[in-house]
Amino acid sequence: MNPILPNEEIRITDGSHVALHFEVSLMSGEVIDSTFGLDTPVTLTIGDGSLLEGFEKVLINLKAGDTRTAHLPPEQAFGVWNADNVQSFAKAQFALSEPNPTKGMMMEFTDKGKNTLTGVISEVNEDTVKVDFNHPLAGQDVLFKVQIFKVTPKGEHALQLR
């Protein structure tokens, strides 16, 4: 039988339920996403796919009360930019859905497997449109800042902040 540990001693492991605030920013300091302005921390389960693996690795072994800022290279964040993820389409293919595609416009596409993909128009020519399917932050180093409020071990009841 495991003794009941105070929450300050419970470490984050795979399957833990965690209440936290986080911030993702570029190396320039530009904040991409942050929950620090929210009244209530967000909750997630480690390993459920709601957070990128590189971000989850930063959380492993932290406990309630911990804060951490980690530099993540592209391979551990949103991926390396890949030229193969830029595709050219005939401009005529856009006639019904978006008759005037412009550079920087985000659009949803459906692949052969009926999956939805988001792409950013990177170039518009007379007859062709290039679409970049890389994540918009691909190739970017990021800073990931976290503050842990509560850790509930795998298998225990959902989080309740008090």
Rank of each mutant, 00 (worst) to 15 (best):
V142T: 07
Q147R: 12
N100T: 15
V146R: 00
D84A: 11
K130I: 10
K130A: 14
A70K: 11
P6S: 08
F22A: 01
S28V: 10
E9S: 06
V24L: 05
I60E: 09
K145W: 00
N61E: 01
H17K: 04
E30T: 14
T40H: 05
G47T: 03
I4R: 05
I121M: 02
H21L: 07
E56I: 12
D132V: 12
M105P: 00
E75D: 09
D141W: 10
S34I: 10
G139H: 14
F55D: 06
A19S: 11
S122T: 05
R68N: 10
I10M: 03
T128H: 04
K103Q: 15
S25K: 14
W81L: 05
S25F: 13
P6E: 08
S16V: 02
S16A: 13
P101D: 14
K91A: 09
S50F: 09
L159H: 05
K112Y: 04
S28W: 09
P73V: 09
S25P: 14
M1D: 10
S122H: 05
S34A: 07
F89E: 09
I12D: 00
H21S: 12
V142K: 00
V131G: 07
D48N: 08
K145L: 02
Q76L: 11
I12E: 00
A95P: 14
S97H: 15
P99W: 13
E53G: 10
G155D: 07
G37Q: 13
L59E: 00
D66G: 03
T102I: 13
P73I: 08
E75S: 15
S16E: 01
T35S: 15
V131W: 01
G113M: 07
L38W: 05
L5Q: 15
S97G: 12
E56N: 12
G65P: 03
L20K: 02
E156Q: 14
Q87S: 08
E123M: 11
F149W: 15
T116D: 02
M106L: 09
D48T: 01
D48H: 02
D66K: 03
E30D: 14
E30S: 07
N82L: 06
S16I: 00
K114Q: 10
V42G: 13
K150A: 11
T40C: 08
K112I: 13
T67Q: 09
Q160H: 13
I32V: 10
G119Y: 00
K112P: 02
Q160F: 11
L72Y: 03
E8I: 03
N125D: 07
L96M: 15
I148N: 01
E75A: 13
E9D: 14
S88C: 04
A83W: 07
D33C: 14
S122A: 14
L143Q: 09
E108C: 03
F94R: 04
L52F: 13
F22P: 04
G49F: 02
A83C: 08
T102P: 01
G15R: 01
L59T: 03
T118A: 11
N125C: 04
L117N: 05
D14M: 15
T40A: 11
G47D: 04
G104K: 08
T35K: 12
M105S: 01
N134F: 02
M106H: 12
T152M: 06
N100C: 11
V86F: 07
P6W: 12
G29F: 03
K114V: 04
K103M: 15
H71S: 08
V146D: 02
F109D: 03
L143P: 01
F133Y: 06
L96W: 07
F22N: 01
V58K: 00
D132W: 11
